[in-house]
Simulated scan of single mutants.
Amino acid sequence: EAYDFGIGKTPIFSFSHENGSNVYAKLEYFNRFGSIKDRAAFFMIKKAIQGSGGSLNKVIVEGSSGNTGIAIGYIATELGVTAEIIVPPGISPGTLEELKKTGANIIMSTGETNSVSTEGAINQAKKKARDNPGLFINLYQHGNESNTMSHVYTTGPEIEEALGKVPDYVAIGMGTGGSITGIGKYFKERSRKTKVYLIHPDDSSFIQGLRNFVSAKDKKIVLDNIDLIDGFLTITAEKAFSAVKHLADNYGIYAGHSSGANYYGAMELARSSGPADIVTVFPDSGVKYHDLYKARKLLSEEFMTELERKIRNVPSGSILLRN
């Protein structure tokens, strides 16, 4: 059903390492609404509708830093459901602009000690639904099993079909934890030899869409599936941004900085593991971070415009693209 909605079956890009390893990155910004969160949002909303007897008359309220909110906003609107997205005050201008297009009601969270943290937004959404159960429903992406299962049912099988094999490693960043637990669960059930590594920023770094495992407060999905995790890879924001530039300069890939973090972490794992097949995901593109990249002088205005145009020219479908 997600496929009929234009979600899933995204292409995979293959990167070769000099030691014989291959890193396979699922380009999730080719989902209909621009990110990997389209999958989880669709599954969570559909489950909520089914749980309400086929018609959801409550308002979906969710705390989000961007991609989940965008996906929920667009999908809920198309399915005839009202959505309210609570966002941190430090949300990027590009993300906020996209959120406003979705048809959802956008509210800034209050009382944040960190302007870019989603913790306050998440807590406000949970409280609003708890205090008004007849009016609101909180999908709670950080603890919703449908988040994980969306990747067990779609992303994992798509990767195996495209590669024609089970990878040696899965290396993915922790946002809500849905993608790493879902893809990890799928492949661990296929082979006991597959190892799963969680990529996260160090405690002093901010990487949009990723959270530090130790300091993150809402990590129920990961804790519920902690037996899937074999190791951790810690990345600095500077490494993530350097990877964004590397991907743009060398491959013409316009990646978001969580994608940069996943690429850097997966390549580090490739360096240390010897010849191996490693799977990761690129959650979103750099389109929403245009102003941020410009401010950091990461990429030129002209180059970013060219890269954005190139995104539209990549063939659709769950196919394998080689560099």
Results as ranks from 00 to 15, higher is better:
Ala121Phe: 03
Ala25Met: 15
Leu27Gln: 09
Ile221Ser: 07
Ala240Gln: 07
Glu161Ser: 15
Gly231Ala: 05
Lys310Ile: 04
Ser35Lys: 04
Asn144Glu: 05
His246Ala: 09
Ile45Asp: 02
Ser242Cys: 05
Ala243Leu: 07
Met267Asp: 05
Pro315Thr: 10
Leu233Cys: 14
Ala71Asn: 01
Gly156Cys: 08
Tyr140Arg: 06
Asp218Thr: 11
Glu98Phe: 02
Lys294Gln: 11
Phe187Thr: 13
Ile253Arg: 04
Ser259Lys: 00
Gly231Glu: 01
Thr118Asp: 12
Ala248Phe: 12
Gly69Leu: 02
Ser52Ala: 14
Ile235Asn: 15
Asn144Gly: 13
Gly6Asn: 03
Thr280Met: 09
Leu233Pro: 07
Ser215Met: 09
Phe33Met: 05
Gly175Glu: 07
Asp4Gly: 08
Thr68Phe: 06
Phe213Gln: 09
Phe206Gln: 05
Tyr169Asp: 13
Gly178Cys: 13
Asn138Pro: 14
Lys126Gly: 05
Ser115Ala: 14
Val59Thr: 15
Ser117Glu: 01
Ser146Trp: 03
Leu210Lys: 04
Gly134Met: 07
Gly175Met: 03
Lys46Ala: 09
Gly143Arg: 00
Asp284Lys: 00
Ile278Gly: 14
Asp218Cys: 08
Ile70Met: 10
Thr148Gly: 00
Pro157Asp: 11
Pro283Gly: 05
Lys58Gln: 13
Ser146Leu: 02
Lys58His: 11
Ile85Glu: 12
Asn313Phe: 05
Thr234Gln: 12
Ser21Gln: 07
Glu84Lys: 13
Thr176Cys: 02
Glu1Leu: 13
Lys128His: 08
Ala129Phe: 06
Ile207Val: 12
Val170Pro: 15
Tyr251Lys: 09
Ser204Lys: 08
Glu238Lys: 10
Pro315Val: 11
Met149Ser: 08
Lys219Leu: 12
Ala237Glu: 09
Ser242Arg: 09
Met304Trp: 07
Glu28Asp: 11
Ala255Gln: 04
Phe187Asn: 10
Gly8Thr: 02
Ile36Val: 15
Asp230Leu: 05
Gly286Gln: 00
Arg309Cys: 11
Asn57Thr: 10
Ile159Phe: 01
Val244Asp: 11
Ile45Tyr: 03
His290Lys: 07
Phe206Asp: 04
Asp4Asn: 08
Gly182Ser: 07
Thr102Phe: 03
Ile207Met: 14
Ala270Ile: 06
Leu79Ala: 02
Lys128Gln: 15
Leu139Trp: 06
Gly8Ile: 04
Asn262Phe: 04
Asp38Glu: 01
Arg271Ser: 13
Gly51Lys: 02
Tyr186Leu: 12
Tyr264Thr: 06
Ser272Thr: 07
Gln141Tyr: 08
Glu62Arg: 03
Glu306Leu: 13
Ile49Glu: 11
Asp284Cys: 11
Thr194His: 05
Leu27Ile: 09
Asn132Lys: 03
Val81Trp: 03
Met304Asp: 11
Val81Gly: 15
Pro88Ser: 05
Phe5Asn: 06
Ser115Phe: 07
Pro89Ala: 03
Glu28Ile: 04
Ile45Ala: 11
Gly209Lys: 00
Ile49Met: 10
Thr280Glu: 14
Asn225Trp: 00
Ala71Tyr: 00
Leu292Ala: 10
Tyr186Met: 15
Asp4Gln: 06
